[in-house]
Design a binder for these strands. Structure first.
Lengths: 155, 155
DNA sequence: GCAGATGGTTTGTATCGATCAACGATTGAT
DNA sequence: ATCAATCGTTGATCGATACAAACCATCTGC
């Protein structure tokens, strides 16, 4: 009577898995946003620092492509980060149109703060999960098909 | 070197679980939105139909509270749904200020379409998960602490 | 009957995100 | 030397969302 498929017993209403995932994802985003805001960063800024630290210095367009955001919005993010001396824009000697973006030492320290804060978010969100369950959750989430977004699959 | 905690081996960068959850949640929301849009509904309209079918007829304010949306936006949603004769607003005889919102027979049929479409989204998203894994994912997601959002926990 | 509170509605505003067009600087090909 | 393409940048626009204020109809307590 309350959204259960009478045959399979699987929820097919507001408790459907995709709904759960969407809702929890939204709440998680909000938590991340709030947590980062408390130390003065936006989610994009945090992502940028992490991406730069993990993938290494790269051109602005490559960075935008990696993060999946428009080049024109990346400009603003980098302006803010560079204003705080957390990243550095250098012209590529090989192609002087390009800006090579690199994280600075100060940016690395900021990144440590970001990671600390994010760890707190994880701790709060997943407090009721054992380590094994958390690893399991990560494994299952990684198996969710989120790639075939761009191609015309829906058609 | 790429976002792994050297001690625990747990990701603490862009591959952190909360980030995974946030990203996948966003993508899932987009998928749901697109899928519902193809049959002419918004996510809110779909949620409204499901909530009404699962919880039964209720006052507008109770509905808004259940769905976690502002009363003033619920008005527009219900206007659209009522325009399509999918829901019905009746005045509560006991309190003629109240609007009792109920799903109609036509709304039930629309709801069936909505559920079909959403099942398709689930199938596409979770194609690589076995039934057991999907159930496991649902179980783990349900254990994520998303309630302590409202109270002043962050302070 | 009156004052205040409540349910629903309307309106306006602020914000955010995504998207697009156009521009200056620079490169590469011809 | 010239032309087309590329990179970063600026600016405008659009849609969705959240939020608050004011309004009318109605209920409740006195």
């Amino acid at each position: 009577m309350a959204g259960q498929d009478s045959a399979t017993g699987a929820p097919n209403g507001v408790d459907r898995v995709s709904f759960l995932l969407a809702r929890h994802g939204g709440i998680t985003s909000a938590r991340i946003r709030d947590a980062l805001a408390e130390i003065g960063y936006s989610p994009r800024q945090g992502s940028t620092l992490m991406t730069l630290a993990e993938t290494g210095k790269m051109s602005q367009q490559a960075l935008g492509e990696t993060m999946g955001i428009d080049p024109s919005v990346l400009v603003g993010i980098l302006n803010d980060l560079e204003g705080g001396e957390l990243v550095e824009r250098r012209r590529d000697p090989a192609d002087r149109r390009r800006h090579i973006v690199a994280i600075t030492a100060k940016g690395e320290r900021a990144l440590a703060d970001v990671r600390t804060v994010l760890a707190g978010v994880d701790r709060a969100l997943f407090a009721d999960l054992e380590a094994g369950e958390l690893a399991q959750l990560r494994r299952l989430l990684a198996k969710v098909r989120t790639k075939p977004d761009d191609p015309a699959c829906t058609e």
